[in-house]
């Protein structure tokens, strides 16, 4: 599994995006679509492991939000939630037009302000 490289990627991305404010980050929220195969608990474990290498990160809170899978049905024009990976709309039409569920992204960053 590659959770540890994902967590590294999170902090590398933040450092790149906020070079001046990185050390004021207090909280990071990640969004992981159900199709990203990311388990929040494993991300937390990987984060704990990374903290052993980078003790300064211990002051940051990491939250992982899982996003359900949503697909769009062309037949009835509606979005529907894909439950148990059945990509079939309530109207009976199969659809793979994924609107949400493949995300792996940072969605919110909080900084300590003065």
């Amino acid at each position: 599994m590659h959770e540890i490289s994902i967590v590294r990627n999170v902090f590398d991305t933040l450092q790149e995006t906020y070079p001046d404010k990185f050390d004021q980050i207090t909280k990071v929220q990640m969004e992981a679509g159900l199709l990203s195969n990311i388990q929040p608990i494993l991300i937390q474990n990987a984060f704990e492991a990374l903290i052993l290498e980078e003790p300064g990160l211990a002051d940051i809170e990491l939250e992982v939000v899982q996003l359900p899978i949503i697909a769009h049905c062309d037949a009835c024009g509606q979005d529907f939630e894909v439950v148990r990976h059945r990509f079939v709309c309530a109207c009976g039409t199969p659809s793979k037009k994924i609107v949400q569920g493949e995300e792996l992204q940072i969605s919110k960053v909080e900084f300590f302000g003065n």
């Binding site: 300064g56 002051d59 940051i60 919110k108 909080e110």
Partner: peptide
């Protein structure tokens, strides 16, 4: 680099600025 302020302090004093950003990993 490492955060300068301990988490406990951050929570109790000062304001929190929030950036609702989307950074695709």
């Amino acid at each position: 680099s490492t955060p300068k302020y301990p988490k406990s302090n951050q929570m109790s004093v000062g304001s929190i600025q929030c950036d609702n950003t989307t950074l695709n990993l």
